[in-house]
Structure formats: C-alpha cells, structure tokens
Design a protein around this nucleic acid. Structure first.
Lengths: 193, 193, 193, 193
DNA sequence: AGCTAAACGAGACGGTACGTCCCGTCTTCAT
DNA sequence: ATGAAGACGGGACGTACCGTCTCGTTTAGCT
C-alpha cells in the first residue's frame, strides 16, 4: 500500500490548465515549463514527476480533454446531409473564436513535431470523427448513403479540410461550409443521366 | 547605388540548405540557429542580418522552393478522374519517403505556429493546388464536372485530407487514395433515381 | 527562513579561483566569463546569479583575498628605517614573480576602469598599508619619526611608487628599494646645518 | 614616387580624437573600434590600415599627445621646494577635472594591460617627470638638494603617488599636496640634532 | 498521537541556445 | 591607391529555459 503523501489533484489540474493557456498564448514551440510552473503555482519538479517531457504533458492535456473540450455530436433529423452540414457549421463556428483557433494550431504543431502527441491527437480526433462516422453509417443503413464509400476516410477528409483552413488562417465562412458539404455529398461529377 | 560589400549569395544558399536539413532532422520546434550557422559555415550574424527570426528564415526557405521542390503537375488524358487520381497517387507516393514526410510535418508545424510562415505556406500550397484547379476547370469546360462545385475548395480539401494523414503519421496507401478520389468525384450520396 | 536549494560554496570558490587565474593569464580587459565558467565547471548563470557584472566578480575576488593573499606585516626591531625597508624589499621581491606582477597589473586595470573595484582595491590596499602605518606610528611614539608627517600619505606614497614601477614593467631592483627608503626617511633636502 | 591617393591626415586626426573621447567615456576595457570609426566618420579599414590593434591605436594617441596634452613645466624661483610643490599642485588641480581623471585612469588601465602601451606610457611619463628631474638637478647643483638622492626615483615616486590617488578616486586636495611635498623634502625622520 | 516517507513550493545547479555586439578581414564602388 | 561603407566568419556577451538536484515543509497512512 502506498505510503507518504498522495499526489495533489489540485496541482495536476492547475498544471494542465496552465499548459493549455500557455499553449494558446505562445504555441507549442515556445511553451515554457518554467512559465507553466509559475502560472500554476507549482514547483517544476512536480511537473517533471508526472510528465517526463513537454510532449507527455501536452499529450495528457489532450487526453484529459483540456484542449478539444466540446466533442461535437450530430443530431439525427433523418436528413443526413442537413445533419452533417450542421456539424461542419458548428465546428466552423467554434473555430472562429481566436483563442480556440490558436489552441488548435498549437496542438496541430505539437502533433506534427512529436509522435506521442500525434498518437493522442489522432485518438482524440477519431473521437471527434466518431460522431460523423456514426451518423454516416446510420445513413448507409437507411439507404441514403452508398455503402463502401469509406466513411472513416470521409470523416477524416472533412476534418482534414477544416484543419487545413485553420492552419492557413483562412476564414471558415459559410461558403466554405456549403462547398465542403456539397463536395462530400454530391462529389464533383456531372450526373451522367 | 549600393555601397559596401555585396551580400554573399553562396552564404545565403548554404544557410537555406542547412535550414532545410535541420528542419528535416529536428523539426521546427528544435531548429537551432547555432547548428545551422555551423553546418553552413557561416557566422550567426549573417543569418540574423537577413532573417530577423527563425520563422522568417523558414519562410524564405519555403519561398525559394527549398522545401516543396517537386511541384506536381497533372496530365490531361481526357479522363478527369483518372488524371486527378494520378495526381493524388503521385503526391501520396512522394510523401512515403520518410524525409519528405518529416519535412512536411516540420513546415506544417512552422505554419501552425507562425503567421508569416503560414502566408508563404498557403501561397506555396496554392501553387501546388493550381495543377488540380486547372485540370478541374478544364473538366468543367468539357462538361465533365459540375460548374459551381467550388474547384478551389475541392483542391484545398484534397490537399487538407492528404496533409492530415501525413500529420497523424498514417499510411498514405492506395486504399486511401482510391477512397479520397471516390469521395471527390461521386460524393457519398446514393443516387436518387 | 531561506527557501529552495542553498547556493553551492564549492561553485563559488571554483569561480573565484578560476577568475583569479584568468585575470593572471589574460588581464582584466580580456577576462572571459565563458572561459571562467568552463574552467570552474560551472554554468554561466551561476556566475551571473551572484555577480551581476565582470567588475563585481573581480571585486569579490579581491574582497575574499584571492588576489592579494599575502598581506605583509612589519617586524619591529626598534629600527624603524630597517623595518620599513625590509617591508618594501619583501613587497618588491614578491612582485618579481611574473604571475604576481601580472595579477597586480590586471587588478590595477580593473580598479582604474571600475569604481566598485576601485573601492575594494583601496580597502584592500589600506589593509596592506596598515602594517606600514602601524610601524610608523610606533616610531612616532618612540620619537624616531616626526609627528605630523602624515603617515597615511607616506604609506600611500610608498605603495603608489611601487605600483607605478609594476605598472610600467620596470625592475623592482634593490637600488630602487634603497632610493625609495632614502626618500621616505631623509627626504631630498640638504641638511641646513 | 607614390601612386594613388595620399593618406588623409584629417582622417588620422579624427581617429585619434575619437579614440581619446571614447577612452574618456568608456575606458580602455570598453573601447570600441566600430564606435571610433563611426564617430570619426571613417571606415574601419582606415583604422586597421594604420593601427594593427587597439593597443597600437591607444599608444599612438599617447605619443601624439592627445592624452597628456599639457605637459607641465616647472618654474625656477630659486626655492626648489616652492617650485616642486607648485608643480604637484598644478598636476593635482588639472586632475580634478573629471574628464581628465577619467582619461588618466583609462590610459593607466591600458598601460597595465598592454606592454606596448606601457612603453609609450612610461616614455610620456618620463617627459612629464623631466621637468621635475631638471628642477631637482638644478637644486643639486645649487647645493639645496643632496646629491645621490636618485632624482629619477624621486620624480617617479611623486608621479606614482599622484596616480595612485587618481586610480583609487581619492581627492587630490591640498593637504595631500602639502604632505607629499613634506615627505619628499624632509622625509619622515626626526632630525637627529 | 506520533512516525515515516512521499509529494510539495522554492529555487540553485550544469548546461544549451538564444539574439546582440564587436572583432579583424574582405569586397565593392567612388574619389 | 586610398577611403567610406558595410558584409563576412567568428567569439563572447548576458538572458531564458532546460531537466536535475537539494532544501525545508506539509500531509497521508501506518503504527
């Protein structure tokens, strides 16, 4: 049985919050453990005791949901296109908050630079995509979406497209939302009729 | 008229090459100006004279084409789907080279962390997308692709989807290529008829 | 009550010793903090934590007696002239060791360039002169030396004369010792008789 | 016959003046060739063409009399003590001008750190002492000063004592002047009568 | 209630890299 | 050929953080 003082959950929480804030403000590149420790009112050793490196810390931040907080869900109105479009629109709206976009870019950079972060990032992203995948599969069962259209890939491409816009700091306006939905549902081909 | 010694183009080139290599090996996060200066056989001041910050240096690297060298073009066989699929496949193949994927991740991180890099990144990406856009517009004119399908957004989404796979270190296998092409051309909807 | 890790006295000592050696070898002008840190096996920040500038470091070196170690004392044989001459001769001999002369020049330069060092330099010099002053005062009490001859000024002039020779790299030979003593005790005037 | 443009004496003069000013303001330690070149409106190469190093430059400054400008002379009133005391007092007064004292300290530091400067320094100092030596020798011939009192050493000790006070930033007040003169002429010994 | 040992905040440690300043050399164009 | 301008390779500066290592000081769980 464990002897000695138990770890402080308050400290842990303070560390993760401070990490999220530092990530938002400075990006992954300029994340500073010293700064986080000070902001969290915590000794540096307390951080290093639990997170052997910057990337583990960011990864845990991700795992604990401090970064992608609102995992979106889809509605099911019976109209799959309307539902998916609503999801895309909600994601776009949420990403228009500057701090949110900033944090997204930071965590994307972290994932790009570090394999461990990338793993958790993908895991988290998959959870986000789960809503899309679930709705699309229901639509397949309802005969509204072609089977064999690779719903995982579809979900990934939707998210990829959105992230790319955030990364390059382009507006996520409604034109984009509509065009992305159009692409996903109708493709680009002229109907052969 | 310029006075004083002219800047050394040899040094500039050596700096950019060393930057590219350091970026590939260490990522944007751990890019070291000291290391680049040593590798390029150049004083640090020579780097700082021309590039006031790490990000400007990386941005120029991007602008000068040291990073995305092989800008892909599309063929025009008359079959737009075949042509676009070939382009996607070529991009995927090229990204399977570990060093190339590594450099892509590094530059993506750089773009995520820095606005100036992001601007050049997008500019460069747009050039890459130009080939896709051109081919798609030709197809529109040929009546093979629906007008008003937002070819810019389509090209962006293709690239976004591909980058997302590279970022998360997933295989860019042929299944993915085919599914992405299917999505782009046919969309996911069951034909209504 | 002090919090955090206590400062390392071992490091402090190593820094001061390395400073003394660097001062001897390179002079004050070319003193290098980098070199001292390396020689002392210490991080540069450890030096800067305690000494905000090169001059403070040298000043502490002086205060801690790393530089003028052997403070000379005078004997008291009853013959004041013999005693003072012996002191001057001892000083001269000691200054014939090249490293000692070199260190003396370095610290003199430091005092010339920096007020803080000058203050400690003078303080240290005064301690050295103390021996002379004490012996001269005893001689005043014994009726061998005129009262009101400004023993402080006398001591200062002796040291000033010696330092001047060291500074200009002239030999501190016995002729000089004897002439200086003659000057101090008899002055230059022809007895009026 | 010399070909090409002749060396600019105006530049040389501007360099030496700028050096003197920089020396006064920053000391020998922080003398900067870049700063001198800018202040003199001269290219750095023009400095290096004529002075292979910082010390040579300072040395030439010394030789050309930019530093110890007013070489003092002695009067000859018949009263050697009055004349020498007047010289000491004039020297002291001159050194009370802060800029002059500052420059004296700088050049003393330079002499302490560099053999070449020391040589010129001593040469210049000897010229200054010449006046004292000359007056003392006249006094010897006049039977006012004991022969064999080492007039060179006496002059050196007077200058050494004065420099020591400047170095340690002590006031060169009249008490000191008087005490130094007393020491020089009467020594400290109680007349044996 | 007292003891023990881990966790805590604080902060100094040996280091690495930063971005700047200056060195002494070199190259260019104008005089 | 000399000179002002200014870029060059290089070295040291003083600062910011890194990840590690003491320091006392809590504080939980076991005796």
């Amino acid at each position: 049985m464990a002897v000695g003082r138990a770890r402080s959950e308050a400290s842990r929480r303070a560390i993760l919050l401070a990490t999220r804030d530092d990530l938002t403000e400075h990006g992954y590149d300029r994340l500073s453990i010293d700064r986080i420790a000070t902001a969290a009112g915590v000794g540096k050793q307390t951080i290093y005791r639990w997170y052997p490196s910057k990337s583990e810390l960011v990864a845990d931040c991700l795992v604990e949901g401090y970064i992608v907080r609102p995992i979106l869900t889809t509605s099911d109105t019976g109209d799959v296109r309307r539902d998916i479009t609503a999801w895309i629109r909600a994601f776009a709206e949420q990403s228009r908050v500057p701090a949110a976009a900033s944090l997204t870019r930071a965590i994307t950079a972290a994932a790009a630079e570090n394999t461990a972060v990338a793993a958790h990032y993908q895991e988290q992203a998959r959870a986000t995509q789960e809503a899309l995948v679930g709705r699309l599969e229901a639509a397949v069962r309802a005969g509204q979406v072609r089977p064999g259209s690779g719903v995982e890939t579809v979900a990934e491409t939707i998210v990829g497209g959105l992230l790319y816009r955030i990364l390059t700091r382009q507006e996520l306006d409604d034109t984009f939302v509509v065009e992305l939905a159009e692409l996903v549902f109708r493709g680009v081909l002229e109907p052969a009729d």
